[in-house]
Design a protein around this nucleic acid. Structure first.
Lengths: 346, 346
DNA sequence: TTGAAAGCGCTAACAT
DNA sequence: ATGTTAGCGCTTTCAA
């Protein structure tokens, strides 16, 4: 059909109206020092001429790209979509766009993401640290460059940046306590990589809950996996000979694998082994039996992370002050997999 | 710690080495007309001085942003993650980045996404049309502006752009045929919005499969929903009084809702009602019984869509020629929900 | 309130 | 093979 249209610039509008380009720029950006008349005239002309602002040029000149870079590990699918949604909500309210990168839990990809964001001159980065990342220099560099960084879910104290995380300890404590209240006494735990703070906190919550209820911690009932369906199944198979009556799994994929192993062994859930996961993945409520879990308020997490970023950007918080850390309180969701009320134990 | 570092530009490197900025630019971009010696010297200096190229400036000057905008509806979670992954793979191979937008199946958000991409001067757009979008002018405008557009999964003939889609007709035909081969004769269909080409094709595949096997199409056994768990449940409840012995659901979320309705009615799957979905969502294989479905090769879809974009970009295909359309053949996955082999029908 | 002028950092003609 | 020059489209002093 038509050939690529010539692009209208503010200069075209300026010529059309016999004003300076600067005036057009000011009018379009609602600069205070502009008369109502010119502003409206300019905006009308822009609409009429189908003007599309060139954000690239604007960014180069102003030094602000109005883009937030977001790094997500992406393994936890549900988590992913929903946190992003929260971030986008707050971002668009502030006239910002979101550039997304999946690290796939790989250190190298995470480094590349940071690099790309720096080169693209994003105004800030929101990130959830990959499970593989132990060296965090790339994040420290961001901070050194003066690019606001906010962590969500997977944070790390050493970076000294604002973060919004879930109280993993409390979630694990509550989940374990719930199993105890259901009458379980031989409660196993399938943990994750212990260098990931979240997983370590969940282990601690589990141990403390047992202690508080005077149940001895049996190290044999604690096994560590790689946080996947397959790994959950393997870990559960190691636990089965030890005859646990309940399992607290580090998250829902692990719990799912464990459930499969339990079913394959011909045991009943929850009558013979009760189970609870963590993260409230989308599939959890549709399993048979439906999986009890810990809900993380993921969308809220995204919103809060974005809000922290804008506070940083607008210098509402001093860069000297200790970084703000927001801790969201998780809530356990009891479903069939751990509900023994009214059931006769076998 | 340190204050925001001053940023190194090619001019700094040029001064350091007593060459012109253009030379530095050429060296860094592996321009052919540059001596090995200078190229290496420049690259070494860049590394040493910790130079970070300013993509914004480069984009403004060159007119290329090296960014692909991707619009996804995002409802189908699994689809989402996996197509993006395919796109990113090919993009990064071509030194391109991906800017992501979720339309949430809303026409207005989709328009906003296109707008943002235009303003951000992305080099091209890959999109999956939202279920709500009937007016497609925003996409036509993209094309008119000379910005390459490639559609994936949800395409539309009228746009006349390259696309990679799944053979929905064949998938539906195969799924229905499979149910027939299992011995089912009263096969119901829960369809989606018929203005979405994919859903219409699936209806046609269903009808033709019945015809080919000399089974009369009973209009009462076809109900239309809104493609969600809740809608699937409602539709199934409408179908139950008609005593179908099988259901082909337009996709897995719908099938999941239908399964719940069937279970709540106290009927056995697949013995009394067999069911198959479409899309192979992540949760489908973990349901009880596991859900038969149609697999769409989502990652491949992303790769091919990105490849079509680069063909367009590099003018490997004429813009005058009819746009290329790639049709991926889906494959049915038979799981418990439709497997009647060896089972005695009740 | 508006205009003139400069320049963000880079790339691409053109010249040498 | 390298340098010179101009300019992408916009914002932001500074001046009027």
């Amino acid at each position: 059909m038509s050939e690529p249209t010539v692009r209208i610039t503010i200069l075209d509008i300026a010529r059309e109206l016999n004003v300076a380009a600067a005036t057009v720029s000011r009018a379009l950006n609602d600069h205070p020092a502009i008369s109502d008349a010119t502003r409206e005239a300019v905006k009308a002309a822009a609409r009429r001429m189908n003007y599309q602002p060139n954000k690239i040029a604007s960014s180069l000149r102003s030094g602000r790209s109005k883009i937030i870079g977001v790094i997500i590990p992406s393994a936890e699918i549900n988590f992913f979509g929903s946190v992003i949604h929260g971030i986008e909500k707050v971002a668009s309210r502030n006239d910002y766009n979101v550039l997304l990168y999946q690290s796939n839990e790989l250190y190298e990809l995470e480094k590349k993401a940071v690099q790309t964001f720096v080169n693209s001159r994003v105004d800030g980065v929101l990130a959830s640290i990959s499970k593989e990342s132990i060296n965090l220099k790339h994040y420290a560099d961001l901070k050194a460059k003066g690019i606001p960084l906010v962590l969500f879910d997977r944070a790390h104290e050493s970076l000294q940046v604002p973060a919004v995380v879930v109280n993993d300890y409390q979630g694990a404590f509550d989940a374990t306590t719930h199993l105890i209240q259901q009458g379980c006494r031989r409660i196993a735990h399938i943990g994750g990589q212990q260098h990931v703070a979240n997983f370590n906190q969940r282990l601690r919550g589990y141990i403390d809950a047992l202690n508080v209820h005077n149940i001895a911690v049996d190290d044999d009932l604690i096994v560590y996996g790689k946080v996947s369906i397959e790994s959950g199944r393997e870990c559960m198979n190691k636990l089965l000979p030890l005859l646990p009556d309940a399992v607290f799994a580090v998250e829902d994929f692990t719990a799912l694998g464990a459930m499969q192993a339990i079913k394959e062994a011909g045991l009943q859930i929850p009558q013979q082994i009760a189970i609870i996961g963590f993260a409230n993945e989308m599939f959890s409520e549709y399993l048979t039996p439906s999986l009890s879990t810990v809900n993380q308020h993921t969308e809220r997490m995204g919103e809060e992370a974005a809000a922290l970023f804008f506070d940083l950007l607008h210098k509402k918080v001093s860069l000297k002050a200790p970084p703000r850390k927001l801790v969201l309180e998780p809530a356990i969701i009891v479903r069939q997999s751990s509900n023994l009320q009214g059931l006769i134990r076998s």
